[in-house]
Amino acid sequence: MPDALSFPPIAELTQLQIDAVDRWHRDPIDNPFDGIQSLVCQQHEFNYRLWHQEDKARSPSATDEEIANVKRAIDKLNQARNDMIEKVDDALTEILCKAGVPASDGPINTETTGSAIDRLSIMSLRLYHYREQADRDGASDEHRGKVNERIALCEQQHADLSKSLQQLVDDIFAGKKQHRTYRQMKMYNDPSLNPAIYNAGS
């Protein structure tokens, strides 16, 4: 099992995400953490900001200029979010090295720990906003019923992924699974790789 001081239980990280979503809807965005928790919180912040920018992009009253500005903000936030996935995975690599866990030749999961934490972050946002819809003034019984069905499904998916991720982390520290950082290598923000950018002046 991982040292709780180095890599906390997944349940602790998911609670951090859940609490932050609720807090950030009432108070300014903060990050009162250290270590891996701080990285998870920072990655979660980018998802939080992305969620609300996506809402703006879909407003039927948004002007073309507003949509263009939101799209650029989304690109930057998405790049930062993906960078943080890598940083979480790099931090786990460092923790494993410091803990003296030898490299494993065991199987590799289809996604990394950082990627799964990112998915849990998005799930916590989805759950918050579905619950907000369930409590919305003036909503019909049909609307509430549909939303509550989706909440139940999201809660099950969140619980399943949390459990699977904890098993993965346990297996990594036990040497049963390999851990790697997979570089996101996004191309659209790189002026040397996006033809719409490097051909702009031609």
Rank of each mutant, 00 (worst) to 15 (best):
I74K: 04
A99S: 09
H129V: 07
H52Q: 00
A139P: 06
R58T: 10
I108A: 14
E45Q: 15
Q43E: 13
R49H: 00
R126V: 08
R81S: 09
E132S: 11
I117A: 00
D19L: 08
S38M: 04
R131T: 02
A116K: 06
D83E: 11
E132V: 09
H129N: 03
D90S: 13
D27E: 02
E65W: 09
K76E: 15
D22Q: 15
A99C: 06
K98D: 15
D22N: 14
P102G: 03
H44P: 02
D105Q: 15
L127Q: 01
V40H: 08
S121W: 01
N31Q: 11
S124L: 03
P32G: 07
L50Q: 07
L120C: 06
H143P: 12
Q17H: 04
R131D: 04
L16N: 04
R58L: 07
A11Y: 12
G106N: 10
I74S: 00
D27F: 08
P32Y: 04
M84P: 08
D64K: 13
K56I: 05
I95T: 04
E132M: 13
W51G: 11
N31A: 03
F33E: 09
A139Y: 10
L13R: 05
A80C: 11
I67E: 07
T14V: 10
D135Y: 10
D55M: 13
D75N: 15
N69F: 14
H129L: 05
L13C: 00
H44D: 02
N109F: 14
A11W: 06
S61Q: 15
R136H: 11
R72F: 11
I67L: 12
L125Y: 04
Q42I: 03
I18C: 09
A20F: 01
D83L: 14
L127R: 07
A99G: 03
I67H: 00
E94V: 06
L39Y: 06
H44I: 08
N47P: 06
D22R: 15
V101E: 02
R131P: 05
W24G: 05
I67T: 09
I29A: 06
N109S: 13
I117E: 06
D141C: 03
I85E: 04
E142Y: 11
N47L: 07
G35Y: 04
N69M: 14
A99W: 01
T14H: 04
G114V: 02
D22C: 13
L92I: 05
I67G: 07
Y48N: 08
P107V: 10
V40G: 06
V70L: 04
A57D: 05
S124C: 05
K56D: 08
D105C: 11
T110F: 13
E86P: 01
R126A: 09
D90N: 10
K98V: 11
P60R: 10
Q15T: 06
D141K: 10
P28R: 02
H143D: 15
Q37Y: 01
N78R: 09
M123T: 14
P28E: 06
E94S: 11
N109K: 10
R81A: 10
D105L: 09
K76N: 15
R49D: 02
L39C: 10
V21L: 01
E54Q: 12
M84S: 12
A68K: 10
E142P: 02
D89A: 03
K56Q: 07
D90C: 10
A103N: 08
